[in-house]
C-alpha cells in the first residue's frame, strides 16, 4: 500500500465558501481545446491565470487567447501572469489566432494580452493585425478585446479601437484607493480615460469594464467606481470575487456573499449600465458570448424606446 505524504498541517487552507465550488476540467471538448492551443503555439489567460471557470468554458470551446506572449511587463498583486522581460513578438500569431477561432467555431471571441511596456506602441499594431486576421478568417464572428491600459503609448488605444472590435473591454480592476498596492504600474485615471476615449473614437463600439471585490474595498467605493464608469459611458460592468492565485499574491480580504453581488447588480443597473454581470465567479470573459447577444438587444431596446 502506498502511503500518502501530507505536507505540514499549518499549510492547510481555510475552507472556501460553498459558492466557490466548481467541476474539474475533464471533458473531451476541454482536451480538444487544450490540444488546439498547444498545436498553434497560443497562450490563454484561462490557463495562465488559473481561472476557476476553465472546465465550464472550455467544454464549450470558449477559450480567451492571450496574445503578445506569456510574460508581462507589469507585476500586479492580483495577477498570476508571469512578470519579466518578454521575448520577441510572434509574427505568425495573428494567423494562428484566426485559425484557432475558425477551428473552435466561435460566434464570439475574446482576445486579451499581456502588458508590453517594452514595445513602442505597447503592442497596438499587433492587436490590429490579430483583429484583422480574425475578421478575414471568420467574418461572422464578433470580436471582444480586453486590452492593457497603453499607459504612455499615445495613440495606441485609438489604433485598436479603429480596427472596430465589437466590444472594447478594459478593466479598472479595483477602486482607486487600492491601486498603489494592487495595480502599482497603472493609474486609475489613465484607465478610466481610456474607456471614455474608445467611445469618442468609435461611438458604435460597446465598452466594458470590470472590478474584483474582496480586496478590502468598501461598498461606497464600489458605487463611486460605477458612477465613474457611467460618466465614461461604459456599457457593460462585470464584478467578481478576487481569488488569490498563489500565497505570493495579495491576500483575500473577505468573500463577498452572493446576496451582496445581487445588490451590486441592482445598483449598477439603476445607474444605467446596459449589461451587468456580478456573481462570485464572474470574470471578464465569462459567458461573454451570451452576454454580447443580450448587450446588443439592450442597446436596440434603448434606442427604440428613445425614438
Amino acid at each position: 500500500m502506498t502511503e500518502a505524504t501530507p505536507l505540514k498541517k499549518q499549510l492547510a487552507r481555510t475552507p472556501k465558501p460553498d459558492w466557490l465550488r466548481v467541476k474539474a476540467p475533464t471533458s473531451k471538448a476541454y482536451g480538444e481545446t487544450r490540444k488546439l492551443m498547444r498545436d498553434l503555439n497560443l497562450h490563454t489567460v484561462c490557463e495562465e491565470a488559473a481561472c476557476p471557470n476553465i472546465g465550464e468554458c472550455w467544454t464549450q470551446k470558449h477559450a480567451t487567447m492571450m496574445i503578445l506572449g506569456d510574460i508581462c511587463t507589469r507585476a500586479c498583486a492580483f495577477c498570476n501572469i508571469k512578470t519579466g522581460k518578454p521575448g520577441k513578438v510572434d509574427p505568425d500569431e495573428p494567423a494562428h489566432v484566426g485559425e484557432a477561432v475558425a477551428k473552435l467555431g466561435l460566434r464570439h471571441v475574446v482576445i486579451t494580452s499581456v502588458d508590453r511596456d517594452d514595445l513602442e506602441d505597447g503592442g497596438a499594431s499587433h492587436w490590429v493585425e490579430v483583429i484583422e486576421s480574425i475578421k478575414g478568417a471568420c467574418p461572422d464572428t464578433t470580436i471582444e478585446v480586453l486590452t492593457p491600459d497603453f499607459r504612455k503609448k499615445l495613440g495606441s488605444t485609438d489604433l485598436v479601437a479603429q480596427a472596430h472590435p465589437d466590444v472594447y473591454n478594459h478593466n479598472l480592476e479595483t477602486v482607486p484607493r487600492l491601486y498603489r498596492t494592487i495595480r502599482p504600474g497603472a493609474r486609475y485615471f489613465t484607465s478610466l480615460r481610456l474607456l471614455e476615449r474608445v467611445k469618442e473614437v468609435v461611438p458604435s463600439v460597446f465598452t466594458k469594464s470590470g472590478i474584483m471585490v474582496g480586496l478590502g474595498e468598501t461598498k461606497d467605493e464600489v458605487l463611486q467606481v460605477m458612477d465613474d464608469m457611467r460618466a465614461a459611458d461604459v456599457d457593460f460592468l462585470t464584478i467578481g470575487q478576487y481569488l488569490q492565485p498563489t500565497p505570493r499574491h495579495a491576500a483575500v480580504d473577505r468573500f463577498v456573499t452572493p446576496d451582496e453581488f445581487t445588490d451590486y447588480e441592482k445598483m449598477a443597473r439603476a445607474k444605467g449600465f446596459l449589461m451587468v454581470s456580478a456573481t462570485p465567479l464572474t470574470r471578464s470573459s465569462y459567458h461573454a458570448d451570451a452576454d454580447f447577444a443580450r448587450l446588443r438587444e439592450a442597446r436596440e431596446h434603448k434606442l427604440s424606446a428613445a425614438s
Partner: peptide, 26 residues
Amino acid sequence: EKTTVEIESPFEGTFTCIGEVGETYK
C-alpha cells in the same frame, strides 16, 4: 488556491481512499 474543485472518477471499478480529509498534498 482559488476554489474547491469536484474531481470525477476517470475510470470505473472498486474504490480505495488513500488521502486524508483536511490534509494538503503535492
